[in-house]
């Protein structure tokens, strides 16, 4: 009986110790929060601890992180935002890929005069979009990049978007230079070849990038089971 008492008290102590540890870790999490001068006296500079701004003497304000991993402005080595190519959206706006930073990206390469696979690829994209809960859609961008920049001008892309009821916020169509498109395709390992002035052969790949532009998942083929793709997207936009 004595033994039981000793053992049980030891157990209780252990449990407490462990939970205390977790409390400690919570505290250290808070310690990771960053502080910045509300007047931005020193520009974007931030501090690890609370205190006062050395310039204007105001109390430093704790910053709420915009998204989970965006503490720094650095683009990682694997991010597609390293590409310097220039693009136009279907609205005619000129952007660089980096402008798409901050949202999970689902990308496919198509061309509008495609009769064979592209309608199915577009359907696959729509299928994926349908399976994302509405409130999460604001964290997603669905990008359709044209491999035929000569024919698919921004105006044509806009017409295509309207025709296919893809004119909402989350859909973006991109028009680039031949060199920019070839480079982008190579990053995605998408192969394509012009067969005739309005006909291309290309691989059918849907790619998913996280908010930092790093490639996380690819789905190859038409009408393929998109379970894994959806899972990856949902994980990324949490």
């Amino acid at each position: 009986m004595k033994h039981i008492k000793i053992i049980s008290s030891v157990l209780v102590l252990l449990v407490l110790a462990i939970s205390c540890n977790s409390d400690k870790s919570k505290a250290s999490n808070d310690a990771l929060a960053v502080y910045q001068c509300p007047m931005l006296c020193e520009g974007a500079k931030f501090y690890d601890e609370a205190g006062s701004c050395p310039v204007c003497k105001m109390d430093l304000k704790q910053i709420e992180k915009a998204s989970k991993e965006m503490e720094t402005d650095e683009i990682s080595e694997e991010s597609i935002f390293n590409l310097m190519s220039k693009w136009h959206t279907e609205e005619g706006k000129e952007i660089q890929l980096e402008d798409l930073k901050g949202k999970t990206l689902v990308v496919v390469m198509i061309y509008t005069s495609c009769k064979a696979a592209c309608p199915r690829l577009v359907a696959d994209m729509r299928n994926i979009e349908a399976q994302i809960p509405d409130e999460k859609l604001k964290d997603l961008t669905f990008a359709l990049v044209s491999i035929d920049p000569e024919t698919d001008t921004p105006e044509r892309l806009k017409a295509f978007a309207i025709e296919n009821q893809m004119d909402d916020e989350q859909w973006t169509f991109l028009h680039g230079t031949e060199s920019g498109v070839r480079e982008f395709a190579n990053v995605l390992s998408v192969k394509y070849k012009e067969i005739s002035p309005i006909d291309f052969s290309h691989s059918n790949i849907i790619s998913v990038f996280n908010a930092k532009g790093e490639l996380k998942h690819q789905q190859e083929g038409l009408g393929v089971d998109n379970k894994e793709t959806i899972e990856t997207i949902l994980q990324l936009i949490q």
């Binding site: 495609c114 009769k115 064979a116 696979a117 592209c118 690829l121 192969k191 070849k193 067969i195 005739s196 006909d199 291309f200 052969s201 290309h202 691989s203 059918n204 190859e220 083929g221 038409l222 009408g223």
Partner: peptide, 11 residues
Amino acid sequence: DSNLFCGSAAV
């Protein structure tokens, strides 16, 4: 292979 590659012409 029309599933992996979109091509209405033979390659």
